[in-house]
Simulated assay, not measured.
Amino acid sequence: MSQTITVIRGDGIGPEIMDATLHVLDAMDLGLSYEDADAGLAALEKHGELLPAATLDSIRRNKVALKSPLTTPVGEGFSSINVALRRHFDLYANVRPARSYPNTLARFPGDVDVITVRENTEGAYIGEGQAITEDGETATLVQKVTRRGSDRIVRYAFELARSTGRKKVTVVHKANILKTTSGLFLKVAREVAAQYPDIECNEMIVDNCCMQLVMRPEQFDIIVTTNLFGDIISDLCAGLIGGLGLIPGANIGHEVAIFEAVHGTAPDIAGQGKANPGALLLGAAQMLDHIGKPDQAERLRKAIVATLEAKDSLTPDLGGSGSTMDYTRAIASRL
């Protein structure tokens, strides 16, 4: 049965890495079809708005989207197009896996295999209550954490552990200081964890978690935490494996899911054929898991690993001299 995916090509290097990703997916002969939709600068130029209603309609209709990086211009009405998408579709779970890959430029020699599950709709990023006094001396921001939001993100992390065979969930918080917001998150997390006796659970204060990730990342399996902490921790994990070029992201809601490369648009190399499509390809693998094709997702991941092992046509960020499409064709040849 054919599955239609909403495709957002994005800005900067976005169209290049999307073309590469679709080339590989087509080589896998998965019966996928694509519906193009615009967002970001491309949408602003064509439609006069950053996030057209037609794009939202396409995502709502297809329920699955694959998205390249987007640019949000300063002063155009959105603090972030990505945040706007998450709010519109209530994409409450942000899932970012980080694992060690062969022949990368990672400085950390250890074996990293960590999934960060980040609450995507609450906390410091809701943007409510932002104000600055007339004299410019004091700024304020409201943080909001709810029982519902905490329950569903922690439950998602434990269900992910069960479905993927992972054994441990680490709840990261700052309840020793943020006794209301982080305190509620931790309380709810403990209640949820008690319902999953088959999954080991431990708790860690966020600053200690960051230190432990750098010292002994092998102790972590799945990390679940609130919005701001999850943003920071997932980038720290990316640094352990060599950068954002191999970090995908899934934004999951009850009805809709959007899969992406989490890095930026890299306008300095746009159009030069240097961009690494690895993060978006790995996002496509997450998408295949989501739509019920886990065997094909693993097939794709293995082809990426085999190409890295062979050092075949790697892009400059991976230490090679290959172009975006050279690297893409090398991956496709190993499917």
Score class of each variant (00 low, 15 high):
Asp11Ala: 08
Gly14Ala: 12
Pro15Ile: 04
Asp19Ala: 15
Ala27Ile: 03
Tyr34Phe: 15
Ala39Arg: 09
Leu44Asp: 03
Ala53Gln: 15
Thr55Gly: 10
Arg60Val: 00
Arg61Asn: 13
Lys63Ser: 12
Lys67Pro: 07
Pro69Ile: 09
Phe78Ile: 02
Ile81Gln: 02
Leu85Pro: 03
His88Asn: 08
Asp90Met: 00
Asp90Ala: 13
Ala98Arg: 11
Leu105Trp: 00
Pro109Ile: 05
Asp113Pro: 06
Thr116Lys: 01
Val117Trp: 07
Asn120Thr: 09
Thr133Cys: 01
Gly136Ala: 08
Ser150Phe: 12
Asp151Lys: 12
Ala161Trp: 10
Arg166Asp: 07
Lys168Asp: 03
Val171Ser: 14
Ile177Cys: 12
Leu178Val: 11
Ser182Thr: 03
Leu184Arg: 08
Leu186Gly: 06
Glu191Gly: 08
Glu200Val: 10
Cys201Lys: 04
Asn202Ala: 04
Val206Ser: 14
Asp207Arg: 03
Cys209Lys: 11
Cys210Ala: 15
Met215Ile: 14
Leu228Asn: 05
Leu228Met: 15
Ile233Ala: 02
Ser234Pro: 03
Ala238Gln: 10
Asn251Tyr: 07
His254Ser: 14
Glu255Asn: 14
Ala270Cys: 11
Arg299Trp: 01
Arg301Pro: 02
Leu308Gly: 02
Lys311Thr: 04
Asp312Ala: 11
Thr315Pro: 08
Ser333Arg: 11
